[in-house]
Design a protein around this nucleic acid. Structure first.
Lengths: 347, 347
DNA sequence: ATTCTTTATGCAAACGTTTGCAGATCCGGA
DNA sequence: TCCGGATCTGCAAACGTTTGCATAAAGAAT
């Protein structure tokens, strides 16, 4: 039969007349093993086609060399971009990545936390659900001293390592940019305020308005999950009655794109009649006509920091140190056509 | 200390005065255990905060309840779309997904195969590297009877389960559509022919030409990795000298988009002067102006089939049955503006 | 009562590693 | 010749489950 059984270190040991412990140490480059023995062992391992059994080692060591990742969904640009670099980076460190999607459901998130704990992952990276305000289901990791790093969609009052974009500054910068481009009546399309980052972008929006002595008007802010349909409905509301706003700051690029499409269909000119700024610098903003100004969040940097934080926490298990400094990743406004010029000056 | 040690089934057993075997069976709903005992055990498990140790169980059972996935990169639309549904589907079956990126490097792919084998995954799904022509590094899975399913970028002469799009028909349909829209001189931008699916799309292109009595001209086909830069370079070559082609069939949406951008910059009108068709139905094709006709590959269907195949193979280990029928997922041409009308009729 | 089933539980080995400790070997120096 | 120390190797336990087999208890049939 070709279904030959899998080789183990005891096969190597027997073949060589050595003990399993010696073989184990040889394979792990333990200093107490002579070079000669190591060579012999490694050669035999190769000859037999030996592949270590990670589960056995993991059981013994109580570590799986695996990191868990929970994101709302892989198909969204920003989490996907981060996932890409996290996975590549972890691969360098010899860690695996188990990726799970919460599909923005709190229940699924809770369940995933449990099954990932069962899998005995060595660390967890999480971008939470829109509706996650209570983070106590992550307690189990805390109790067992397994590092958890939150990124992007992060908790507010939960003691944990947090890596997030500078959402306040992002909101501020986007709004100020619109003002500088001549806008005086700026709509903000925000997400559910259960999610921290939308709150902060909103705060940035307000702050920019007030700094520039523009009034904040409640009906000029819309809150909803940032789906295409919702964005479309909002677009209709926004442009249902005159006067139109002269600027739209969407807290999400999908929404910005949808607004742009709506405007084009309705013959509302962008940027002449209304200027648009999005958020995240989704590559789609660049290929659309006109291209959309957006706030870049440096996904690569964020991903790298997530991995760095995890590796750091894994290596020097700060057992009871509850000081988890929050890391802020900078943002950058990428100016494009959708907010170009000033209507007055151009004509 | 809050760092309380993890509870195991022996803790439950001691607490209840039962044996570990009874506890284990109770938790797994073994029929030989009385309902009363099961209830007691489960209640105690909950009370102690017991979480099964998947590694220990895996070691014993020789199965990890984990599937490996190797794709070129997560950030590309099509593999990402498939990954999304594969992950969600596997979650339903109680399986984890370890995602790895080969970054289109054969060496990385080989390495990943080995470390995934070490992780003792129960099955593997692969979309290969562009340059993978020799698939023997997957032999180790074959030898140990661990199911491997290839999708999208699949091997040709390697005995394995394969799930792929109907690339020949896709190439044919795209080309024929351009012909029907009035094109007579159609450029095809293909990928490296080391990759199977490009070959088939090219064959479809040729076949459509010949069926419609149009000559196949070698210089009208370009081969290169489908990056933005390469596409741009090709665009310059294509439009360097008259006569321009009146149709471009790009085997990839990124390329199609790049060509479109180039044309717009050069004042070449799409679809009036040249019509464009892409491949994969990347959502970007829809938001670009003009929107781009593309061949949809039903990523969701493909993902579901991958999971179905894996689950099937895992359940009834067909040990030496080498009959691995290849599954073909249909395609559908999504007609959009970039190939609309016929230049003659419109004017 | 005795035997035979049926039902529920326990014993102990096994999965493939790693590692603390003990022991063996070898070498040079006195 | 003997000893101390360095260097290398082996023994055996442990990690947390699962499971074949044996056994105990309880009820049914005689």
């Amino acid at each position: 039969m070709s279904a030959r059984s899998e080789k183990t270190i005891v096969d190597i040991a027997e073949e060589l007349g050595l003990s399993v412990s010696t073989v184990s140490r040889a394979l792990n480059d333990h200093p107490n093993i002579s070079v000669k023995t190591k060579d012999k062992v490694k050669k035999m391992a190769r000859k037999l086609g030996y592949r270590p059994n990670a589960m056995a080692a993991g059981l013994r060591n109580n570590k799986s060399k695996t990191i868990g990742l929970i994101i709302p969904r892989i198909s969204m640009f920003f989490p996907a971009a981060i996932t890409t670099v996290v996975q590549n980076k972890l691969q360098e460190y010899g860690y695996h990545l188990i990726i799970c999607q919460s599909n923005d459901s709190l229940e699924q998130e809770q369940e995933l936390v449990n099954t990932l704990y069962s899998a005995r992952i060595d660390g967890l990276a999480v971008s939470a659900t829109l509706s996650t305000t209570d983070f106590s289901h992550f307690d189990i990791f805390k109790q067992h001293n397994i590092p958890v790093v939150f990124f992007d969609r992060t908790p507010k009052d939960y003691q944990a390592k947090v890596i997030k974009g500078d959402d306040f500054l992002g909101g501020y910068t986007a709004t100020e940019h619109l003002i500088e481009q001549g806008c005086r009546d700026i709509v903000h399309i925000s997400g559910p305020l259960t999610c921290n980052l939308y709150k902060e972008r909103l705060a940035g929006y307000k702050d920019a308005l007030s700094k520039h002595k523009l009034p904040f008007k409640k009906p000029r802010v819309f809150f909803h999950e940032l789906t295409r349909e919702n964005a479309l409905a909002t677009a209709e509301k926004i442009f249902a009655q005159q006067p139109y706003p002269d600027g739209v700051f969407a807290t999400n690029d999908t929404t910005a794109i949808t607004i742009l499409e709506y405007c084009r269909k309705q013959g509302i000119r962008v940027p002449e009649d209304v200027k648009i700024v999005g958020y995240s610098n989704d590559p789609r903003t660049e290929i659309v006509t006109p291209s959309i100004t957006s706030v870049d969040q440096f996904s690569a940097t964020m991903g790298e920091r997530v991995v760095a934080a995890l590796m750091d926490l894994i290596q020097n298990r700060h057992p009871n140190s509850y000081r988890h400094p929050q890391e802020i990743v900078p943002i950058q406004l990428i100016k494009r056509e959708s907010s170009a010029g000033s209507p007055k000056k151009k004509k």
